[in-house]
Design a protein around this nucleic acid. Structure first.
Lengths: 158, 158
DNA sequence: CTGAATTTTGAGCGTTCTGCCCAAAAGTTC
DNA sequence: GAACTTTTGGGCAGAACGCTCAAAATTCAG
């Protein structure tokens, strides 16, 4: 399976250029990064094919969809039938992502909501999911550091 | 400012098509969604311009960069000079995102690490950040629900 | 350190897409 | 029902794409 085929310096430069201008053409990227057009094309295709690039959905901001509230719900689960719990959570559209984590809490559930009432409703839905024991909702109030990978990319680009 | 210009049904269909094939051409997207080429072009340009689409960096998977470990570090801060704390956190490359959240804990820090030792080091860096009081590291062990917005998009696409 | 294997480069070529124009049709708003 | 906005479809020149190929450069292994 395509495990961690590490991105090399050339890939990293291409990705940085793409981060700067996501709609740039292959030729433009090749120019900006100083590599041949053929190489850029090969690399880009490979990046998309091997799964080094995550789903496009990651770029769709829930805010733009009318869900301006972000919350993180932590929950404990009865360890039996975790998969069942996971698929029940996946059935809730507002659940964006669920991590199984170590520590005193078992689940970190990333949700989006239209407003406070909506969030309350969703929290209720989640508590009703079979296997969910206790939950605690934390509202994301401010984005102190917006998501970025550029520092890691620059490191990889040498 | 371009606040929440809600994405309409046409946009949602385009985004779903893009999620299915991120490298699809505009004509291909227009065909798949059954809208005119000109309309698709206008919409796509607008989506990118108005910020309905988040940064491309969101698609770069830290795993592919050689950081297979994901962790969430929660921390409490001395409420003074939160901005200073934020910029100190932003200076750590492995810090992917920081949320200010409500609840017993103030910060949710999303980090990537090469391995357990690396994570330990990063946790140390974060604890050393001025303003950080206490911290607790939770390792993401399993992705129960991988990130997705498709359910919300389908709802928006009617 | 040298030979083999892989990758990058540069050039070319036909097809397709892009970015733009415009006017007519469709859909919305008041 | 009139005014306005958006979508549609057509067209057009220039650019980009996807592909091939052979030479040059780089990487890897013995």
């Amino acid at each position: 399976m395509p495990s961690t085929e590490t991105v090399d310096a050339i890939d990293a430069r291409l990705l940085l250029a793409l981060a700067d201008d996501p709609r740039a053409t292959t030729v433009a990227l090749a120019e900006r990064t100083g590599i041949a057009r053929n190489t850029a094309q090969t690399r880009l295709t490979r990046l998309e094919r091997t799964g080094a690039l995550d789903t496009f959905e990651r770029r769709v901001s829930p805010e733009a969809l009318g869900y301006p509230l972000t919350a993180f719900i932590t929950a404990q689960v009865t360890q039996r039938r975790l998969d069942e719990t996971a698929s029940a959570l996946a059935a809730v559209p507002e659940v964006l992502e669920v991590h199984g984590i170590s520590g005193t809490v078992d689940l970190l559930i990333h949700v989006a909501a239209k407003d406070a009432d909506d969030l309350y409703r969703i929290a209720g839905l989640i508590l009703a999911v079979p296997g969910i024991e206790r939950s605690s909702t934390a509202l994301a109030m401010r984005r102190l550091v917006p998501y970025r990978v550029a520092p890691l990319l620059r490191r990889a680009a040498d």
